[in-house]
Structure formats: structure tokens, C-alpha cells
């Protein structure tokens, strides 16, 4: 028991000092994790970029209805979003080897124009602290994670583009 308390103490001291250090300029970067592209080649997430424009990173799976709904809703307005803001959507599928084979057919049959990545053993999902899907992150032009949200319901895409616009306009989104 004492040991546990001591450990918790050491942990909290360490972590709080780390956080205190970073507080003035708290940034969260995308972890560098190897995932797969749809053609089977290895892709490291440190290579994600969008010419200084924001990126929407969405965790989904073929069997997750709200996830497919979110990506379908965004698809309907994606061309407009891209013209207006230059935003790029990266859809990370957490389908395991049971259903990875149906990811590309589903994406193409739905005419989705996203960069789709495969995370079959959830390495990126774990590194980013994702508990439930859909879980969506927004990265600013510097590749820093500035916003995230879990779950999707009808109209949820409106909030996403709202945040993207604010990032582009340099508005504060720390309260969103």
C-alpha cells in the first residue's frame, strides 16, 4: 500500500513538473507509428502532412455504424470543405485481419476520397489514447493536435468544419 502511494507520488511529481514545464506552450504532436496504406505498404504517421493546412484524423472501422455515417456525411460536403479550407481527411481503420480485406472495397464503393490507413493491431489507436470510435482529431497546419472529439451524431460534421475554419483564421479554440 505504502509502495503504491509512494509510486503515485513520484509519478505525480514527475508528470506535474513535466506539464508545468510545457504549460506556456502546450503542444501535442502526432505520435510516429507505423501503419499500413491500402496497398499494403508501411506508412509512418510522422509523414502525414497537408502543405501547412489542417488535417482531420478520424478513427473508424467497417463494422462501426456511426463511423461510416460520419465519413459518409463528410463525403457529401468534402469537396466544398477542401475548396474553402484545403483541409484533408485521414481515415484510420482499426479493422483487424478479420475485416481489413473489405476496407478498400468499402471505401471505393462509397466514393470516399480520403487518405485511408490501416491500424490492424491498434498500435496508433493505443498511442493516441483512443477508447471508443468514432474518435476524431484535428491537427493544425504545424501538425499539432489541437482538438478531438468522440462519437458522432447527425450534424456532427458541422462542428468539425467550424473548428477547421477557426484554426485557419487563427481564432482560439481552447474552449471548444
Amino acid at each position: 500500500m505504502k509502495k503504491t502511494i509512494f509510486l503515485l507520488f513520484v509519478l505525480s511529481v514527475t508528470f506535474s513538473s513535466v506539464i508545468a514545464q510545457d504549460d506556456e506552450n502546450k503542444v501535442r504532436t502526432l505520435p510516429a507509428v507505423d501503419v499500413k496504406a491500402l496497398d499494403g505498404s508501411t506508412f509512418n504517421t510522422s509523414n502525414l502532412e497537408n502543405d501547412g493546412k489542417p488535417i482531420i484524423l478520424s478513427f473508424w472501422a467497417t463494422w462501426c455504424k456511426p463511423c461510416v455515417k460520419e465519413l459518409t456525411s463528410i463525403h457529401e460536403v468534402y469537396a466544398d470543405w477542401q475548396t474553402e479550407t484545403g483541409v484533408k481527411l485521414v481515415a484510420v481503420s482499426i479493422d483487424n485481419s478479420r475485416s481489413t480485406a473489405s476496407v478498400a472495397p468499402l471505401v471505393n464503393s462509397n466514393l470516399w476520397d480520403y487518405l485511408v490507413l490501416l491500424d490492424p493491431n491498434n498500435d496508433l489507436k493505443r498511442a493516441m489514447g483512443v477508447n471508443m470510435i468514432p474518435h476524431t482529431f484535428i491537427l493544425n497546419g504545424k501538425g499539432e493536435i489541437v482538438w478531438e472529439h468522440t462519437s458522432f451524431s447527425e450534424g456532427g460534421e458541422l462542428e468539425l468544419i467550424d473548428i477547421v475554419r477557426k484554426i485557419i483564421n487563427g481564432e482560439d479554440i481552447s474552449d471548444e
Binding site: L7, V10, L11, T14, F15, S17, V18, I19, Q21, D22, N25, V27, R28, T29, M128, G129, V130, N131
Partner: peptide
């Protein structure tokens, strides 16, 4: 923990990040 503390102290000049999840 000792390793973590020493490493993070050595590299405090650089930025460390803490993330996680709870349920």
C-alpha cells in the same frame, strides 16, 4: 519510475508530452 524520472529530468530542456485515456 526511476528511469523515467532520470530520463525526463535530463531532457527537460526538450519537451515531454503526457497523454492517456481513462474509462
Amino acid at each position: 519510475i526511476v528511469f523515467l524520472v532520470s530520463v525526463s529530468h535530463q531532457s527537460f530542456a526538450q519537451k515531454g508530452e503526457i497523454h492517456g485515456s481513462f474509462q
